[in-house]
Design a protein around this nucleic acid. Sequence first.
DNA 1: AGATGTGAATAGTTTCACAGCA
DNA 2: TGCTGTGAAACTATTCACATCT
Lengths: 267, 267
Amino acid sequence: MTDQHAATPDEVVPGEPSAGGVRRARAVIGRAVRSTLPSRSTGDVRRVDRVVPEATVARLAVYLRALSALAEQGVVTVSSEELATAAGVNSANLRKDLSHLGSYGTRGVGYDVAVLVERIENTLGLTRRLAVALVGVGNLGHALAGYGGFTTRGFHIAALLDADPARVGEKIAGLVVRHVDELPEVVSELDIAIGVIATPAHAAQAVCDQLVDCGVTSILNFAPTVLVVPDGVDVRKVDLAIELQILSFHEQRKIRPIGGSALEGVS
Amino acid sequence: MTDQHAATPDEVVPGEPSAGGVRRARAVIGRAVRSTLPSRSTGDVRRVDRVVPEATVARLAVYLRALSALAEQGVVTVSSEELATAAGVNSANLRKDLSHLGSYGTRGVGYDVAVLVERIENTLGLTRRLAVALVGVGNLGHALAGYGGFTTRGFHIAALLDADPARVGEKIAGLVVRHVDELPEVVSELDIAIGVIATPAHAAQAVCDQLVDCGVTSILNFAPTVLVVPDGVDVRKVDLAIELQILSFHEQRKIRPIGGSALEGVS
DNA sequence: AGATGTGAATAGTTTCACAGCA
DNA sequence: TGCTGTGAAACTATTCACATCT
């Protein structure tokens, strides 16, 4: 199924039951995902069918970042309390999350940072380095191409594409921009696993269709549009306007009436 | 929820119960928010205390965009089915969402597009135009400054700031970059309601603290860091690396074993 | 008829609280 | 003793199914 997702965290645009062959992307958040995991980082063969809830997956990435920072500082062990604080979550939530990956902590002690890093990287599939194609090198795409975010572990931008002939041939961040019509060759030659759409809204669906036709089944969409994709394609969406509007909603709620029985707290 | 939130939906990094005075940002997604609403777009005085769930708020912004497109096409009425399709959600979900704003549909007919637009804009607080300050005009910040996303209804970028003296004075998108130390004056002079952090990770917490000190209580964070903020401050986060890692997780799950009892679907 | 609005059922997520192990 | 791992409880969200109204 497909995932149509609002970043955001949060985020959070749900799926829809099927109608024809093509349906809306399923919500990334909300459903647990069956996962076959090696049960230990030692080379044992036992495999356990586990379920990692969507909400947990999103947080694992956060834990991973916090753990990497700890590892750099030479920290060897963390308690759930410490790591939870660093990640901004409740410690019980963290323990529950980690329990979905198996038991890797030591009671009375905590978690071994290195072991946990490896375990999470494995779960998220970050041992491979997935090739990313970025379509649309306008304002935002240009910035994304040079942004450090992609060079994080597990990904590399392998190709830049644009529909504008004037931009084709331009060199950005060491890559030459190719025409979007070359997508089929680019995808197969470079083994593209993830497509990032940073085009204007009106072009996004067409680009998305092209990506899907080329066999790309994971898409990150920065264009302010709902993408329609076939089953089996995951779409996540990052939408500035929506984030701002959500903040606006809460901002509005903060304004206290003058004689003020203020709204209790904000939460 | 403090919204420490992944665009994405997913996002979806929860808050944490208090510990000292300063706690983690509360999760934006997950808790309903009490909202005092005028009950009709007619000028009647009746006010109803309603609750709008967080998940609903996030979707209202999506509905709004779809409705605007419909309005431009001259469409006067939509059914929940049509609008739900355009927004990529289940129609029952949409109806439930809208029911939180009151009853604005007509049975047997559908919803009046214009009425619904106004109703949602009101709920999201988009009648005011909130002033946004963008801190960090590096790669990403530069792009955001020029990006159309902010000029969406309800917002305008009022100030650009950076810590790098070499960048101060530069003119971007019609605005002169000011030094981040001028934040207090900038915030009060321009009545900044939302701070956008597009700095490197290591600078983000300091900038966040400055914003909060200046009285800004809504923050959109593009830096890959968990921000710690006092109660009452909302943080939403857009995190590229996390989005990619979530896609990676699902990508990994798609790979079928060769003799393959494939994993059934992906969901 | 046809579509809304909503109670009830279901599903997913977070938090509590504590048993159990190091 | 201290911290993990986890059942159970609480809460939030989604979907179904249908009464209700135009």
